[in-house]
Design a protein around this nucleic acid. Structure first.
Length: 571
DNA sequence: GCCGTTTTCGGCCCGACTGTTTTCAGTCG
C-alpha cells in the first residue's frame, strides 16, 4: 500500500493555496503549507495515525490533525469543500503562470469571471483586461508572455544540463575585471535532481560590468529583469539564469541565502528572530541597533546562530536544523570516499567505449576497484551469449594487473516473476551481480513487490540496479510496496543502487531515507555507458548526501576485502 | 493555526524588482 502522506500533503497544500487566493489570513496559509511539507517528509505513514499521533508531526496541531483524520475516514474535508465551492479549480492553476499570484488571480476571477488559463488567454486576446485595476498594459503583456512560457518550456532542467550552463556562466562572469568571487548557488548547489532556475552569485564592489557581461552573454534570449543587484535572463534553450552581485564582505551570508532552500532559510531566520537578530543576504544583524555581527562566511553565520555548518545537500528543512543545533548532523559521504564503481558497461553491449577505454578512465579517476557489468543474455537487444560473456572475462583477466582491481560482473535482467538470466552455476563465476527491471513496468504493486523481493532473495544478486526504473521527465517510477522491498534487501544483504546517471538518479532521495531506516546498504554507481559518464558520480554522491548517507552506508566506499566479504556472505 | 531559551498569548523571514494605485502592492525567490 502506498503511504497516505503524499495525498494528505497535496490536500493541505491545496487548502493553503485556496485560502491564499480567497484572501485568508497569511499566517494561517503558511501554517498549512508548513504542515503539508512536514506530512510529506514524515517517516511514519500518516494513514496509520490517530489525532494524537498526528499531533506529533511538526506543524500539525489539533485542528489540522482532525482534518487529516476526517479525510482518512471519509475521503473529504468539509472545510475544504466549502473553499472549493468558492473557487473553481482553474483559478488555482492561474497562479502557476509567471507573474500571476493569488491576488491577481482572484481579481481576474471576481471582476471578469476568468476561471482558467485558457479563459485568461482569450480575455487578453479580446482586450478585456483593459481598465481593470492593477492590470496596466505592461502587466497584461507580461501575463500573455507568461502563459506562452508556461506552455512551451515549463519543465525543469536535468541536473547535468544545468551544471554545464552554470559552469559556463561562472566562467563568463568570473572573468570580468572586478569580480572577486563567483559560483553557482540555489538548487544546483543543493544538487536537487532537477533544476528550475539556475542561480549564480558573484562578489564585486562595482556590479555594473558583471551585469553587463552577463546580460550580453550570447546564449541569452531575453533579459527578464535588470537591476543594480540582480539580473535575470532567459537562455535560448529555455532555462532562466539569475545573477546576484553582492559586496565582498557579504559573501558568506549571501551564499547561505541564495543556496536555500527557501524552507531551510525560513527556519534559520526564525532562529535568528528568537535571538533578537535579523538575517539577510547582507549578513546577520542585531535588531535593536542594526549592527552587523557576521557575514563573511557561511560557517560564521551558522555558528553565531548556535548551529553547526549544514552541508548544502541537507538544506531542505527535513530535520537538518534540529540536527545542526544538537550537533547530530551525519558525516556525509563524499566523492573522495568512493573506492570503486560497481555498475558500468562497455561496447560489448550498449556502451560506446571499449573495455580498455573504460578501465583507463577508471584508473584516471583514481578508483581502487572497478566492475564491468555488461547486460546479460535475457535482453535480446543486447545480443549477449554465454560465450561472449566468458570471452570478456578472459580478456579482462588478461589486462595488466594494477589499479583499479578489475571485477567481472553483469547487469542481470529481473524477469516479470523475479527470476534472472542465468542459473546458479553460471552466476557463481561473477565477482558481483547487479540486477535490474527493464520491462513490464505496469505490473500491479503486488506483482512488482514479489518480483523485487524474489530478486533480493537470489544469493547471487548483490545490487538492485536503478530500483524505481524512472527516467526523469519521461518514465514514471514503478510503485511496489517499498517498505517490503527494503525489508527484504536488508534481510538478504542486497544493496540498493543509487544510480548517478542524470536522467535516472535512482533511488530518489525520499526513498533513500526510507530504505536507510530499514538498515539497507547502498551502492553509488554511474551505470556508465561511455568513459565520460564516470564523471556523473558527483550527482550520485550528491543524491546519497540528500538521503543523509554516510560512507559506511555505501558498499563501494568499503575496502575490496570488505566488499568481497559482503558478496560471499550472501552466497 | 501553530508554537514556546521573549512559553498559553502574541507573534509569525527578508529583500529586489516591476508596474502602477506616484507611495506601495504584488510577485518572486
Amino acid at each position: 500500500m502506498a503511504r497516505a502522506n503524499e495525498a494528505v500533503a497535496a490536500l493541505l497544500q491545496e487548502y493553503a493555496d485556496l485560502m491564499s487566493i480567497t484572501g485568508g489570513d497569511a499566517f494561517k496559509v503558511r501554517v498549512y503549507e508548513k504542515a503539508a511539507r512536514s506530512v510529506d517528509t514524515h517517516p511514519a505513514d500518516v494513514g496509520t495515525l490517530d489525532v494524537k499521533g498526528l499531533q506529533q508531526v511538526p506543524n500539525v496541531g489539533k485542528s489540522i490533525a482532525e482534518k487529516i483524520v476526517e479525510y482518512l475516514a471519509h475521503g473529504r474535508i468539509a472545510a475544504m469543500d466549502t473553499l472549493r465551492a468558492k473557487i473553481p479549480p482553474g483559478v488555482r492553476e492561474l497562479t502557476a503562470v509567471p507573474g500571476l499570484g493569488p491576488k491577481k488571480a482572484m481579481a481576474l476571477y471576481e471582476e471578469l469571471g476568468i476561471a482558467n488559463v485558457d479563459e485568461l488567454e482569450e480575455a487578453i486576446g479580446e482586450g478585456r483586461l483593459a481598465g481593470l485595476r492593477g492590470f496596466g498594459a505592461k502587466t497584461v503583456e507580461n501575463l500573455r508572455h507568461g502563459i506562452e512560457l508556461s506552455r512551451s518550456s515549463g519543465g525543469r532542467s536535468l541536473i547535468h544540463d544545468a551544471m554545464m550552463i552554470a559552469e559556463e556562466a561562472v566562467g563568463l562572469v568570473g572573468a570580468v575585471t572586478g569580480c572577486l568571487r563567483c559560483c553557482h548557488a540555489g538548487s544546483l548547489r543543493r544538487l536537487r535532481e532537477t533544476i528550475g532556475d539556475i542561480d549564480i552569485l558573484a562578489a564585486a564592489v562595482e556590479p555594473g560590468p558583471l551585469m553587463a557581461a552577463f546580460a550580453g552573454w550570447d546564449r541569452v534570449r531575453e533579459v527578464i529583469v535588470r537591476g543594480e543587484k540582480k539580473t535575470s535572463v532567459r537562455l535560448v534553450d529555455g532555462p532562466q539564469v539569475d545573477l546576484r552581485v553582492v559586496p565582498p564582505e557579504s559573501w558568506g551570508a549571501a551564499l547561505q541565502y541564495f543556496t536555500g532552500s527557501k524552507e531551510h532559510n525560513v527556519r534559520i531566520r526564525e532562529i535568528a528572530v528568537r535571538k533578537g537578530l535579523r538575517l539577510s543576504e547582507y549578513g546577520l544583524f542585531r535588531v535593536d541597533d542594526d549592527s552587523l555581527i557576521v557575514s563573511e562566511t557561511e560557517e560564521e553565520v551558522y555558528e553565531r546562530l548556535g548551529l553547526a555548518w549544514v552541508p548544502p545537500t541537507l538544506r531542505e528543512d527535513r530535520g537538518e536544523v534540529d540536527a545542526a543545533r544538537a550537533g547530530e548532523l551525519p558525516e556525509l559521504i563524499g566523492v573522495e570516499d568512493i573506492r570503486g564503481d560497481l555498475h558500468t558497461h562497455t561496447n560489448l553491449t550498449d556502451g560506446v567505449s571499449t573495455l580498455e577505454e573504460m578501465v583507463a578512465a577508471a584508473r584516471a579517476r583514481g578508483l581502487r576497484y572497478y566492475a564491468v557489468t555488461d547486460h546479460a543474455k535475457d535482453l535480446p537487444m543486447q545480443r549477449m551469449t554465454d560465450a561472449k560473456m566468458l570471452a570478456q572475462r578472459d580478456r579482462l583477466r588478461g589486462l595488466p594487473a594494477g589499479r583499479p582491481t578489475l571485477l567481472h560482473g553483469t547487469e542481470l535482467n529481473i524477469d516479470p516473476d523475479g527470476g534472472v538470466d542465468w542459473d546458479a552455476d553460471f552466476l557463481a563465476g561473477f565477482d558481483v551481480c547487479v540486477a535490474s527491471v527493464h520491462s513490464h513496468f505496469n505490473q500491479s504493486p503486488d506483482e512488482l513487490t514479489r518480483r523485487l523481493v524474489r530478486a533480493c532473495e537470489n544469493p547471487y544478486v548483490n545490487i538492485i540496479g536503478h530500483p524505481t526504473t524512472r527516467q526523469i521527465g519521461r518514465r514514471a517510477p514503478i510503485e511496489p510496496d517499498w517498505d517490503a522491498v527494503f525489508a527484504a534487501a536488508a534481510r538478504t544483504g542486497t544493496a540498493m543502487e543509487i544510480n548517478s546517471h542524470p536522467d535516472r538518479l535512482d533511488l530518489p532521495d525520499h526513498l533513500i531515507l526510507r530504505a536507510k531506516r530499514h538498515g539497507v546498504r547502498f551502492a553509488v554507481d554511474t551505470d556508465a555507458h561511455a568513459a565520460t559518464h564516470l564523471a556523473h558520480l558527483r550527482y550520485g554522491v550528491g543524491l546519497a548526501q540528500r538521503g543523509w548517507l554516510t560512507a559506511d552506508d555505501v558498499i563501494n566506499t568499503w575496502s575490496l576485502t570488505k566488499l568481497r566479504a559482503f558478496v560471499r556472505a550472501k552466497r
